[in-house]
Design a binder for these strands. Structure first.
Length: 554
RNA sequence: GCGCCCGUAGUGCAGUGGAUAGCACGUCAGCCUCCGAAGCUGAAGAUCGCUGGUUCGAUUCCAGCCGGGCGUACCA
């Protein structure tokens, strides 16, 4: 249409040139600036050697002349504004079908085909099974889970995975810790080293292992004993992690064992393959992977001079295995303290023949735990931490998840325990959930009064009655939901959905305070009920992406 | 030193290559005989860290600098 106008204007001699630079058509930031707007006049100012406002004026005149058929039911008004924007205003009737769409598509409204079924794996949490999950893991869990949900809604085929570090030194240390506590329980005086896990849960596990495996332990020497303790403890802790995540609403499609990479020989194979390609060399008795060739600062050790493999070795094998499983794209969610690891893994991914674009790392900045504004020191080793379970038990799953997703993971997050524990209206989750509960209340009342047969229906009625400013604002917001889902999926930023929900909730609350839904004018009332039901569904769909429930009442 | 992230209102954070920089909390003033006041309306509050550059136009992109966080192992 704009192009048409340019041609017409040129032919009529209003513009000196018919060349068309790159321009954009977008939704303006503020109300009163139309539904679509283009910066065409501004970007072509140089080319046309004319003032943007003058170009815009010529274009609008041409459009009114040549495309008058477009004006009418859909297009209401075209105007020139600001430094030369051309704003297009749609008529209310153009928006009404959106309400029907929401009611019809229900839980799938907002879904997108953007991902074209691409296989994506999101790996997150992946905490070592050496202690319970703490608050920091909670943020990673909330982010990973939400990213998975959003990608899936945006048309990707998503698998969520947890990588279990069930081999290596930490597990041995865990075994030793339990073993030593066991010795202490039996009255032996043993030194409990600093680098062992200090938490009370180690004692609990020691008691359990004694109760269930005491007989085997009695016959075991120290090495066997530690092995038994390690396996028992890891299993026990992992079960706890699973259950904590379950309470947090996070479910994984797959739990992948690091040990299995060793058992199947994949780690060894990966190293051999790299050796053959001359990507691994020996120095000082250790094996080094040439990560520097792939942009890392320096080469990294995969096998130490004592013959033991590093974590990096199994990570190479692990990522290779992921792509071999058929994933087009792999996303790892890590804590910010692991950022130095990105280049390394990226190098491994590229070295096995994949493209760097197929690998993404979401770096979640650290959670700063506070209590009444004062920092809480946390260390797994010292056994002093606030667990994810503590948080969920005290503030609830919904509030915790919403809090974690309320801001970009690019920023550090202050999580104040006392504040989070407060069930006050400070918590934004109530603001959004309240909309859902409020609308449920309205629909129930409408049903009681016989206005509607059921509180859920698929077709709106008398939608043409929705002409109030607040109503159109709501409809336009609803219409933009899918765009937000796509934006969120593209940027891998779940807080986009959070911000959207807050905006939608705010618009609804304002509407509610200005207009009654259940009124004497029955057609208008039915139209408003349709709108309100649509809002309810969008709120529910959005909350679902974040893993937050949409309560019928609160 | 090097690398990553952040610097926007009193506080915590959104946002954008363009037209009036938003939200929440906090402060002040209002709104329930009326579908849920966990809500709404209004007011006050910001030289978008600093300096350059690219651009018709920069808070947004780039470079440098200054602050803050994190990392920088043959640890995991």
């Amino acid at each position: 249409m704009v192009l048409d106008a340019v041609r017409t204007a040129f032919e009529k001699g209003l513009l000196p040139s018919n060349q068309v630079p790159e321009f954009e058509v977008e939704t303006p930031k503020y109300e009163g600036q139309g539904d679509f707007s283009t910066n065409f006049a501004m970007v072509s100012a140089k080319l046309q050697k004319m003032a943007p406002a003058k170009i815009a004026k010529s274009l609008v005149e041409s459009m009114s002349d040549s495309t008058h058929t477009h004006l009418g039911p859909v297009l209401e008004k075209i105007e020139v504004a600001g430094p030369g924007f051309i704003n297009f205003f749609l008529s209310p009737g153009a928006w009404h079908p959106v309400v029907d769409q929401v009611l019809n598509q229900d839980a799938s409204f907002g879904a997108s085909a953007m991902g074209r079924g691409q296989l994506v794996q999101v790996e997150f949490v992946s905490a070592n099974p050496t202690g319970p999950l703490h608050v920091g893991h909670g943020r990673g869990a909330a982010v990973g889970d939400a990213v998975g949900n959003i990608l899936s809604f945006a048309g990707f085929d998503v698998q969520k995975e947890y990588y279990i570090n069930d081999s290596g030194r930490q597990i041995r240390t865990l075994g030793t810790s339990v073993w030593l506590r066991l010795q202490q329980m039996q009255g032996k005086t043993v030194d409990f080293p600093q680098d062992c896990y200090q938490g009370d849960y180690i004692r609990d596990i020691a008691q359990e292992v004694f109760a269930t495996r005491g007989k085997d332990l009695a016959d075991a020497d120290e090495k066997q004993g530690i092995e038994i303790c390690a396996r028992f403890a890891a299993g026990k802790i992992l079960a706890g992690i699973r259950s904590d995540l379950d309470d947090f609403g996070v479910r994984f499609d797959n739990w992948f064992s690091e040990q299995s990479l060793y058992d199947s020989g994949r780690v060894q194979t990966a190293i051999e393959n790299f050796k053959e390609k001359d990507l691994i060399y020996e120095k000082d008795g250790a094996l080094w992977f040439r990560t520097e060739k792939f942009g890392d600062e320096k080469d990294r050790v995969v096998v130490r001079n004592n013959g033991l493999t590093t974590y990096f070795a199994s990570d190479i094998a692990y990522h290779d295995e992921k792509y071999e499983r058929g994933f087009d794209r792999v996303i790892d969610v890590w804590g910010a303290d692991h950022h130095g690891y990105i280049k390394r893994i990226d190098a491994a991914v590229v070295a096995t023949g994949r493209k760097s674009e197929q690998f993404d790392v979401i770096l979640v900045q650290l959670v700063n735990l506070l209590r009444d504004g004062n920092p809480v020191q946390m260390s797994t080793r010292a056994g002093e931490f606030v667990t994810l379970k503590d948080i969920v038990d005290e503030v609830g799953k919904d509030a915790a998840r919403f809090m974690f997703l309320s801001r970009s993971y690019d920023s550090g997050l202050d999580f104040d325990l006392e504040l989070a524990k407060k069930k006050s209206s400070d918590n934004p989750v109530y603001y959004v959930q309240y909309v859902h509960a409020r609308i449920t209340g309205i629909l129930n009342k409408a049903k009681d009064e016989g206005l509607i047969d059921q509180t859920d229906f698929k077709t709106g009625s008398h939608l043409e009655k929705l002409v109030a400013e607040e109503e159109l604002k709501l409809i336009k917001l609803i219409a933009g939901f899918r765009e937000q889902v796509e934006k969120s999926a593209e940027t891998l930023h779940p807080h986009v959905i959070f911000t959207y929900l807050m905006t939608l909730a705010s618009a609804f609350h304002a509407y509610y305070n200005h207009h009654k839904v259940i009124i004497a004018d029955k057609p208008l009332s039915l139209a408003r009920l349709s709108l309100v039901l649509a809002v309810k569904k969008v709120i529910r769909n959005g909350l679902a992406l974040l893993g937050v429930s949409a309560p019928e009442r609160m």
